[in-house]
Design a protein around this nucleic acid. Structure first.
Lengths: 359, 359
DNA sequence: CTGAAAGCGCTTACAG
DNA sequence: CTGAAAGCGCTTACAG
């Protein structure tokens, strides 16, 4: 399995230049212009011999491992959510475009995850970290701050950090407005706990939409659940139905798995979705197209977000200029059947992707 | 962000031994016994100073990067399946236990994935590869064979390779037998294409169960779909219903997403699940507990499989004795409602996990 | 049995 | 402007 490795020295000899020159040319260093012919000769030799720099050697010199850790906290009963999965793909692709690798943790338990990160920091086996789904006073952030470059996917209030986030407020606004346009006045919101900052922004968007429509905000219509799962969604609807309010006629759920649980529980109560209860999810987990009824949801471009975050992080690590400190990405409504707009024939949004009958 | 790094030299000086001795002790090399006191002194100093070997330096010397690539091929419309996600977690954890990292690709397109692997092989930026879901004549295997150690998750017929696999035959046997025990005779199988080796084994298990029960095998009850998706599942049921056979009264689907599509389509045709059509899925994607009806499925211990594969691969890379070349892991039936056994009150299997009211 | 020294393949400060 | 040489932090073959 072992062929002798092609080294810089080989390239230098074969191109009749010094190792230093070969190194500079191959790394595109500014130095003096080597004559264009020499330059080409070196490049050509390298590609002919299939030269690949030795990552270990490079890393020993530069103290860069070209490795990024992606820290994703998983919901207790859920493996990588569709959202997190796209994040991983996006980060991998963006990393590879720069010749980097990613390593993906993915613990269910924050303590385990912290231990992991501590170890990684101590080892310095990684050059930077992407943190997904930060919570308030996220201990991962305190751990990393000042020790290692990192970029958040999500947003953070306490400190100035680099981040790529969804326009959560706008997205929730859009979802709520859609239901309002369908004539709903009693619109519930099922959200993760408020220490998830994402959810805080989304709650703002929800309130904005109500405000704009002149619908009074009613705190009891907001249920916060401990995790994103169908089970939690089912429980949330139970709570909403047991309260003495006028029953909600519509729900916005902050994740598709919550929405599925809500629909499940609605059916158990003999409520028809969408006639008795309109439901809108979040994140566009693909399988929700085939739930009964198919789920209207807010699609989030997770892969694109991860790409941005990865590129940003690599620039940070290289100490190159980074550009914007925060990037905010838009979302898109996917109209299917659980919101009932297909019955009323009206929607404030175009139904792009949803209408293609697939994707 | 930069403190001076603690090196072996620091440890050696502080412990008043040579660098070589420090190195040996810290790496647990057989060498002579250093006196136990010295040994302890070195260990203690290292931990006091927080010594962490420099991965780059080590890699330059040993030509090992302590990095494994995990190659997962994604279904076109699906991000990491729950199964693949658990694989990733399992591989990560097992890798970290040895101080290694994993890098996760995850392309939808086999050509892209191959290009990726080729690049990784050329760079030698990775010490080995875990391949998930090999197909017949898998081009990834030809690519890696003889160039880099790899372990399959799944099985392979053409060549002797190292692998960790589910007992696919046994699992499908179990699922089919469960339906037979419920009185079904017309049991359909919705499978991925036969070039997925996993499915081939499962088809065998299905036939075995029929055979044992004296039910004739009918090829037209087997539908092969191109991908694991709800859409494909829905189409498969359409095909089964249009054929002129006695309509199947039960279906085993090789993936939960197929099963969901089947249930969806059954409802569209006015068929009640499980009364008119019993459905059993595969893989126990968590959300299927909340589908309507909740899905009876075969749980697969993906995380454990990935752990095994990772440990095996690391041993291969280190050229340590590996033990078994193939490891086969069992599956477990999770009985919920879509198979209808709760109505008939009989099942040949214990309902362990399914009865806990959770997962 | 133990330590000094070479060398892995790069990058870069320095000398010419 | 360009090349020779030092050195990053390890591991190991070799000398004592």
């Amino acid at each position: 399995m072992e062929k002798r490795r092609i080294t810089l020295k080989d390239i230098a000899m074969a191109s009749q230049v010094s190792i230093a020159t070969a190194c500079d040319v191959l790394n595109n260093k500014p130095r003096t212009r080597v004559s264009e012919t020499t330059r080409q000769r070196i490049l050509e030799t390298a590609s002919r011999l299939g030269y690949q720099p030795h990552r270990g050697a490079r890393s020993l010199r530069t103290n860069l491992h070209h490795l990024i850790a992606v820290s994703v906290l998983l919901a207790p009963e859920m493996p990588f959510s569709p959202f997190a999965s796209e994040l991983v793909s996006g980060a991998f692709k963006a990393a590879r475009e720069e010749g980097w690798h990613i390593t993906v943790s993915g613990y269910r338990d924050i303590q385990e995850e912290l231990r992991q990160l501590e170890e990684i920091i101590a080892e310095r086996s990684v050059d930077g970290v992407i943190i997904y789904e930060p919570v308030e006073d996220d201990p991962r952030i305190s751990l990393l701050k000042g020790k290692m470059p990192f970029v958040l996917i999500g947003s953070y209030e306490k400190e100035e950090v680099y981040s790529v986030d969804l326009d959560n407020e706008g997205a929730a606004f859009m979802a709520t407005q859609h239901l309002i346009a369908l004539g709903h006045h009693h619109i519930a919101l099922v959200s993760a706990p408020r220490h998830y900052l994402t959810c805080r922004s989304r709650q703002r968007g929800y309130r904005q939409a109500l405000l704009q429509a002149g619908i009074p905000f009613d705190q009891s219509f907001v249920v916060e659940v401990e995790e994103y799962s169908s089970q939690a969604g089912a429980q949330a609807l139970e709570i909403l139905l047991q309260r003495n309010q006028p029953r909600p006629t519509a729900v916005v759920a902050m994740d598709d798995s919550l929405a599925l649980g809500i629909i499940y529980k609605a059916h158990q109560h003999g409520l028809h979705v969408p006639d008795d209860l309109a439901v809108v999810g979040f994140n566009d987990a693909r399988y929700t197209e085939y739930s009964e009824p198919s789920l209207t949801t807010v699609r989030v471009f997770a892969e694109a977000m991860a790409r941005q975050a990865t590129q940003m992080l690599i620039r940070l690590i290289r100490q190159e200029p980074v550009g914007a400190r925060h990037i905010v990405m838009p979302a898109q409504m996917i109209i299917r059947r659980s919101c009932g707009s297909w019955k009323k024939g009206k929607s404030v949004f175009q139904n792009d992707a949803g209408s293609k009958g697939g994707y």
